[in-house]
Every structure is written in C-alpha cells, then in structure tokens.
C-alpha cells in the first residue's frame, strides 16, 4: 500500500489515510474510552473480591480485597457452574456452527442464485428479524413441550440454530465479495451447485463466516430470556444458573458479582487470547452494506 503513495505528496499535507500517525490527542481519547470500556468489568472483579457489607459502604471499594477465591468457590458451588459451563459450551458451539453453515448456504442462494419467490422469501427473512423475541415464548414453548424437550438442551439449541440476521448478514457479504464471474466461470466448468458452494462460496465467505460464528457464539452464550423458560436449574446454561445464584440464605452481592464474573470470564479469556483473530475477523468480514 505504502509503495503506491506518490512521491510528490507534499509533506505535512493533511491526509486522513491510515498512514498518518496518531497524535497525543488521539491516544488520550482512546485511553479514555478504553478505561470506560474496561472499568465496569474490572469493578465486577473488585466487587467479587470483597464481602457484602463492604460493598454497602461509601466510598465504594476501588481496589481488590481478599475474598475473591472464597466468593468464586461459593458461586461455583451454589450455581452448579461446572455443568452450566459445559452445557453452555455445547449449546453455543452447536448454535454457532449450525448458524454459520445454514446461513451461509442460504445467504449464497439469496445473493447469487435466481429462483422463484426469491424476493418474497428474502423479505420474509428480513421481516423475522423484527419479531420481538419475547413474543414467541408461549407458542415456542408449546412446540417444545409437544416434542417433550423441556429441560433438554435441544430446546435451547434448535430454535436458535438458524438466524434471520445470519442469512441477511451472509447475503450482504456475498453480494459484494463473491464476483458473479467467479460463479459463472465455475458453472461453465460444469460444477454442480454443491461443488460451487464447497469450492467457491465457502472459501470466499470465510471471513464473514468466522464473524457470524463468533457473533452467534457470544449471543448464544449470553442468551437469557428463552433458556430461563425452557430449562431449569437441573440442566442449566450459565445464564440460567446465574438466576438461581445468591439464593443462599440471603442474596450476597459479592457472591452474585463473582457469579457474573464466572459467567463472563470464558468469553473474556477468549477475547484476550484470540482478540487479534476476532478483531481481524470482524474487520475482514464486516458487512459493507
């Protein structure tokens, strides 16, 4: 990129391009926003490291106390976190994979193939994004109950295994990113639609698939409303387990914060270790409109 910059560019000329180094002002603003982003999370840990009475005092605690291990242990035990975490990994993983596969092929069909009712079906898909999720709970629960799935993990997995947003997202990405010539060339080579998906669509869609997978995973991990109805404490996901937390004799704020921390920690760790890949994925896969 840099190589293509014409040499005759006047030095010091304002250029909003990426090559410009950030000044101290930019760093200051970024630092401010970063602090704002991290503070509530750090403070969750601070609160989780104190005891309930200390959290009631002013000024509020600003630094860590010594109760973190004890509170984490209590939260782990009370909420049955082990099973909950395993369940959540299974649920969120399945949903992420399913969403990515199904939404990619559907998005491809909507983006590049012609078929009858395409417009109508796409409209229907986008329309579903607008259905408030609180609405479907009763009929959805009837379906689940009819299938005998209450308190089973598939009650949480299957209803969210595909998402209208995912289809829309993949379609938007593929419309731009997948050149029509590529599809036609493959066709002229006599490739079947399935080979086309395999060899052309998936490779091109990979960044967007990664983003969609990450988004679905995070969303499934944090989903709360439907799992609380469909599951019980016997077989919970993390968010369901957290609703039973602090039920000890009296809700203990520090333990509740420790539970919140436990439920968030796996995702935070993933963001810390794979931050570069996740951010890179979003950058490459972001919908360009």
């Amino acid at each position: 990129m840099t190589a293509t910059v014409p040499a005759r560019r006047r030095p010091g000329l304002a250029r909003a391009g990426r090559q410009l180094h950030a000044g101290p002002f930019a760093y200051a603003v970024l630092a401010l926003f970063t602090a704002g982003s991290l503070f509530p999370l750090v403070w969750t840990a601070v609160a989780a490291s104190r005891d309930d009475t200390r959290l009631a005092r002013t000024p509020p605690p600003l630094w860590f106390g010594g109760n973190l291990p004890a509170n984490l242990a209590r939260a782990w035990g009370e909420a049955g976190m082990g099973l909950a975490l395993a369940n959540t990994v299974l649920v969120a993983g399945t949903i992420a994979l399913g969403t990515v596969l199904f939404c990619t092929v559907a998005g491809f069909a909507f983006a590049k193939l012609r078929f009858r009712f395409r417009g109508a079906l796409l409209l229907l898909t986008v329309g579903t994004m607008m259905v408030p999720p609180q609405l479907s709970v009763v009929p959805l629960f009837m379906v689940i109950a009819r299938l005998g799935w209450t308190d089973h993990l598939q009650a949480v997995v299957l209803p969210t295994l595909v998402s209208a947003f995912g289809v829309f997202f993949m379609r938007q990405f593929l419309v731009e990113a997948l050149p029509g010539e590529l599809v036609e060339a493959a066709r002229m080579d006599g490739a079947s639609s399935w080979r086309l998906v395999w060899h052309v669509v998936f490779p091109v869609a990979r960044p967007a698939m990664a983003v969609l997978g990450m988004l679905s995973f995070v969303q499934a991990w944090n989903d709360f409303f439907w799992p609380v109805v469909a599951l019980t404490q016997e077989n919970p996901t993390v968010q369901v387990a957290l609703t039973g937390l602090g039920r000890g004799y009296v809700p203990d704020q520090a333990v509740i914060m420790a539970g919140a921390l436990l439920g968030t920690l796996p995702l935070l760790l993933a963001f810390t270790f794979f931050g570069k890949q996740i951010v890179g994925g979003i950058m490459r896969g972001a919908v360009k409109g």
């Binding site: 509530p40 969750t44 709360f224 919140a260 439920g263 968030t264 995702l267 963001f271 996740i278 979003i282």
Partner: peptide
C-alpha cells in the same frame, strides 16, 4: 470490544 462479550445480565 470487550464490553460486547459481557452478557446483558452481568
């Protein structure tokens, strides 16, 4: 991006 990883409840 980290706040995005936090659930609404937490």
């Amino acid at each position: 991006l980290t706040p995005y990883a936090t659930s609404v409840a937490a």
